[in-house]
């Protein structure tokens, strides 16, 4: 199944990004396709390049980057990113900044859209 994902919460303060990541991992392991991951609202900061959590903690931005390297399209909303000072040079590799039109495309192309947030 083609699954689209939208995340609405930032890293660490909220578990939405972790749950989404685990969900995607499990879905891919079962052979599902991830149509796209759209980072909206505070979720745009999940891919902050300069994030440096303690070594014994999970590295949320790096996790998304590694998932992107596997071919998952990870899209950061440009409007939400601008509000929060996120720029193309401040996001991790294998992720990209684009518009809400990408979320619309995910919604039309995916067979299921799952959102993670409050």
């Amino acid at each position: 199944m083609k699954i689209g994902v939208m995340i609405q919460e930032g890293p660490y303060n909220h578990e939405a990004s972790d749950t989404a990541y685990k969900f995607i991992e499990a879905a891919m392991a079962k052979g599902h396709t991830i149509q796209g991951v759209f980072l909206y609202d505070d979720a745009v900061t999940n891919v902050a390049k300069h994030m440096e959590p303690p070594q014994d903690d999970r590295h949320i931005a790096r996790r998304w980057s590694e998932l992107g390297a596997k071919g998952v399209d990870i899209v950061v909303c440009v409007a939400a990113a601008k509000r929060r000072g996120m720029k193309p040079e401040l996001i991790v590799d294998n992720t990209r900044i684009s518009g809400l039109g990408q979320l619309s495309e995910i919604c039309t192309e995916a067979e299921r859209v799952v959102t993670f947030g409050d």
């Binding site: 909206y40 609202d41 809400l100 979320l103 919604c107």
Partner: peptide
């Protein structure tokens, strides 16, 4: 507010 912004963009599709 950001929800409303989504509606406005989706209207173009």
């Amino acid at each position: 507010w950001e929800g409303l912004e989504v509606v406005l963009i989706f209207g173009a599709y």
